[in-house]
């Protein structure tokens, strides 16, 4: 299991390659989140991600533990960046290895949904009208709720 909160970019291909290989693993599902150049009708120039050092790692570890309790998670990598990012930059990687694709897909989606509502990250966008903090979306809470 790998959990990293870092300023630097990551190589998703390399991270997936680094996930354990053994005869029990039949599927690796992964998700990469990117910075978009438009949000809520405004052009986004740069996006700054702030986080709560210490709590972030702890929250991500707790979310991974929860996924392991629900699905067969044989290995898993979660990388989330912070600092200043530009459109098309990678923000987050979640990759889950399991015996079969169903469990890998479900655990990967669960990790993303929980991460979006429980990990202490905040996005601030620079737009032509000035800087603004991204508002949390009810849709994200709904997405996390469905796993209850």
């Amino acid at each position: 299991m790998k959990i990293a909160v870092q300023r630097d970019d990551f190589d998703a291909g390399l991270e997936i390659k680094n996930i354990s290989r053994n005869g029990k693993i039949g599927a690796i599902a992964s998700f990469v989140g990117l910075v978009r150049d438009v949000n809520d009708g405004a052009a986004v120039g740069t996006m700054t991600l702030e986080h709560y050092p210490g709590m972030t790692e702890k929250a991500l570890a707790a979310i991974v533990e929860e996924a392991k309790g629900r699905w067969e998670v044989l290995d898993c990598t979660v990388i989330h960046r912070y600092g200043e990012l530009k459109p098309t930059d990678q923000i987050v990687l979640v990759a889950v290895a399991s015996g079969h694709r169903g469990e890998a897909f479900a655990a990967c989606e669960f990790l993303m949904d929980y991460l979006k509502t429980r990990a202490p990250f905040w996005k601030k966008e620079q737009t032509p009208e000035g800087a603004r903090w991204v508002e949390a979306k009810a849709a994200d809470d709904d997405a996390a709720e469905r796993w209850k």
Binding site: L49, M112, K116, W122, K123, A136
Partner: peptide, 10 residues
């Protein structure tokens, strides 16, 4: 103790 707005990562 920490105070913060709802999170918006991912």
């Amino acid at each position: 103790v920490a105070f913060f707005p709802p999170v918006t990562g991912g």
